[in-house]
Write a protein that binds this DNA or RNA. Structure first.
Lengths: 126, 126
DNA sequence: ACATACTATTGTCTTGTTGTCAATAGTCTT
DNA sequence: AAGACTATTGACAACAAGACAATAGTATGT
């Protein structure tokens, strides 16, 4: 083997998930809330604009609750003016805002990664 | 709710995984093999160039075996000239080539999606 | 007033992907 | 012959994601 020895031993990644995959749901939710507080059912519809249409509601609600637990968003039960059951309104926190910035940075890296791959492919396709 | 009614009912996605996440391992492996036949251990090192360094070997080997089962690659045991145990050499199939093309198309869409997100963010950051 | 439809959220179960770790095994160096 | 490096495979556990059902409030039509 030409140059560069192996050292892979002991890389130590976070458990369970995601060696290199790019989730979009969370950043998109943060982004939508970045534009103003909103509730799950409305967000559900807006996801469509970012190519995240037909996503199961429970997935979105769960993500919101988890983001709440993480402290990226804060939620309050909306008062009266609803036609239907009470809604939980989410609002971005300072921490969530910082998280969004980090995520955008991460997505830019991911984009570069994808670009690299595509470029390499374009050199000798088919 | 202004415009657009709900119709989410009955979207029917593939089971188990990945509503919208972007895996890079498989396309990168296909791309590397697209440049010429190779074996797992060598590919493992080349992954680094695409930002997929420190990935557990078994993950890569498993991906290769699965791609073999899918028919995207074909493998043969390499003859003599190895310093170490015999190596399984993978080669891209026609089907794998088509798969790669599809994947590149998919990645381009994903890139656009990311671009959209980043653009929206850039309009009103911080 | 009651049934139905729509709005809205939560909980649970199953499945499959992913990472870790251990086992196997061949060759080269000392 | 021991140890280091090359190379691949197998089994297991954790966990995340999707499907689906349950709950529940309001509005509308009859």
């Amino acid at each position: 083997m030409p140059g560069g020895g192996q050292k892979r031993r002991g890389a130590r990644r976070r458990r369970g998930y995601s060696g290199r995959s790019i989730r979009l749901l969370e950043p998109v939710l943060l982004l939508l809330l970045h534009a103003g507080a909103s509730h799950g059912y409305a967000l559900l519809d807006q996801l469509d604009e970012f190519g995240l249409g037909d996503l199961n509601p429970s997935v979105v609600y769960r993500a919101l609750r988890e983001m709440d637990e993480q402290g990226w968003v804060r939620s309050v039960w909306e008062g009266e003016e609803t036609q239907g059951p009470p809604r939980r309104v989410y609002e971005l926190t300072k921490c969530g805002n910082e998280m969004l910035a980090l995520w955008v940075k991460d997505l830019e890296e991911a984009k570069d990664q994808i670009d690299g791959l595509i470029d390499t492919y374009r050199c000798r396709p088919g």
